[in-house]
Design a protein around this nucleic acid. Structure first.
Lengths: 107, 107
DNA sequence: CCCCCATATAGACGTTTGTCAATATGGTTA
DNA sequence: TAACCATATTGACAAACGTCTATATGGGGG
């Protein structure tokens, strides 16, 4: 948990798009191939390929080739790690470095 | 939880930047004014103002004027809502619409 | 081997993002 | 009121993003 912000922002960026949120939501139901993901969206095939690349390169989604098809599924390990990180940075911590020596304003 | 993707992507986008992740992390320790947030970052004052605007307009951060200073704090209600949403879309659901009628590939 | 199908890549393009210096705004205090 | 703070806004700019059409790649089946 050292320079975690730089590491985890890759995950957050991967989720920072409405289409990709929908894709993750679909994949939570189980593994899907690209053609069926595409059926549930209103984008072109190449745009889907672009989004799947971002999701799988981030590490949030696993991509497996199955003959001519690609099968996608969630990488639950990394998703849980991201959720834990977000919970961590939004919950109060003790001995917080950033609140030392505040004298003038803010108190 | 209807067209939630479009609503929640605003929160996710607000977190999709390393600087803003650091700011949220700082604020988790408690309320801070802009000048002390700035001390912990390596950006200009106007850039901080830009990031604080994105965070507070998203609803993840509360901004309160205190004389000449701005005091910022986390909006825990919305943060918890976001965390719950992310947990929801990454966990398996029953009766999932997107897996109906898959016959050809993917099975 | 050739064609077909699913997916990936390339190229183009308009939009959005993150950053800064410079300036404006608006509260505080002498 | 005037000068001085902290913060916000503006304008400029390069880089990244999301989208498409067109094309390439690569596996499967006849």
């Amino acid at each position: 948990m050292q320079n975690a912000h730089a590491d985890y922002v890759v995950f957050v960026k991967a989720l920072a798009d409405e289409t990709r949120l929908k894709i993750v939501d679909m994949l939570s139901c189980g593994e899907m191939c690209a053609c069926h993901i595409l059926e549930n969206l209103s984008i072109s095939q190449s745009t889907l390929s672009y989004h799947m690349k971002i999701l799988s390169e981030s590490g949030l989604v696993k991509a497996v080739r199955d003959g001519a098809w690609m099968r996608y599924s969630l990488n639950q390990e990394n998703l849980e790690s991201l959720l834990a990180f977000l919970k961590h940075i939004t919950q109060s911590k003790e001995n917080c470095a950033c609140h030392k020596s505040f004298k003038d304003c803010c108190k």
